[in-house]
Design a protein around this nucleic acid. Structure first.
Length: 297
DNA sequence: AATGGTCAAGTCAGC
DNA sequence: GCTGACTTGACCATT
């Protein structure tokens, strides 16, 4: 089991997700930004290694505008050395990596242009992971997409459009249950048709799950991950007290987390903490999990 | 230096 | 019809 957090580390003196306005796009600006982002990514990973954090989600902003037509710069070639260094570090420390494209990525969109932009954006994510020399266990997680007034046809359209994807994307793509449109049961249905692994989001399931017990869900979801997919990933969070239902917690709730750990037995999972405190939450979670000899091996 | 409007891309709920 | 939420406020024009 590995424990991680997404994209940002508040303890290091840099940010790896810097971007800039489209209006001020220029090649030298891009090169400067990407260079700094990759440098900071290594800084974050060094911090993680020093704290036993072996799971990390790389920001989609590593290369701003990478999938936009304005970006004709060959960043992969230009930064191949730096990316190789980061990749070596990841592999040397046996780290797990994921990425999570944002809300504009919609495989099942009705609009063919949106699907085309989605494919380009997914290929960018795969290129980042390829450049790091990571295998198919470095996952790209997305949601099923929109409902567009017809759930059944929107689900089957996902299956259709999934076939359009390049193998370098397909070997890494996993689908995650969301907090309003598609439940983990929907994801399992899509998985049956496409063979795509299901990334279980524990908190989304609490908000939009239909009450199926977590232990049952995990056993079904775990079965969708093949050997080459690696250990199943899950997203974990809990409800922030006293705010709108669905808001992610600012801090790790140790009791809630421990209940989840117990429910997840005997499955080995890599746990991504979607907690606003980021690396601090990961350190707390590692301490909690570390008390149980069965968990951290 | 501080402020505040605005940001590549989409959908949907809640007001 | 606008705003907020989504993995996250940050950029940058203007004062």
């Amino acid at each position: 089991m590995k424990i991680g957090y997404p994209c940002i580390n508040y303890s290091v003196p840099c940010r790896g997700n810097k971007t800039f306005r489209f209006a001020s796009y220029a090649e030298d600006r891009l090169i400067e930004t990407v260079g700094k982002n990759i440098g900071c990514l290594l800084t974050i990973l060094e911090y993680n290694a020093a704290h036993g954090i072996l799971f990390f989600r790389i920001t989609s902003d590593l290369v701003p505008f990478a999938s936009h037509p304005v970006c004709t710069f060959d960043w992969q070639a230009h930064f191949s050395m730096e990316l190789g260094t980061v990749g070596d570090f990841i592999r040397e420390h046996n780290m797990r990596i994921s990425m999570h494209p944002d809300q504009f990525v919609l495989i099942n969109a009705l609009d063919a242009d949106i699907v085309a932009r989605t494919i380009t954006e997914l290929e960018y994510h795969a290129r980042v992971l390829d450049s790091l020399g990571l295998d198919g266990s470095a996952k790209i997680q997305i949601h099923i997409g929109g409902v567009y007034g017809n759930r059944a046809s929107s689900l089957s359209r996902f299956g259709q459009n999934y076939r359009l994807l390049h193998p370098s994307v397909r070997q890494r793509l996993v689908i995650e249950n969301d907090d309003r449109a598609y439940t983990v049961a929907d994801c399992l249905k899509v998985s049956e048709i496409t063979g795509i692994p299901v990334l279980f989001d524990v908190f989304h399931h609490e908000v939009n799950g239909g009450g199926q017990p977590v232990a049952e869900v995990i056993s079904r979801v775990a079965a969708t991950w093949k050997k080459t997919d690696g250990i199943p990933m899950v997203d974990y969070s809990s409800q922030e007290p006293r705010v709108r239902k669905g808001n992610h917690a600012a801090r790790l709730d140790p009791r809630h987390f421990l209940i989840f750990l117990n429910a997840s037995q005997p499955f080995d999972l890599d746990i991504m903490l979607e907690i606003k405190e980021k690396e601090a939450a990961a350190i707390t979670a590692l301490r909690i999990a570390g008390r149980d000899k069965r968990l951290l091996t």
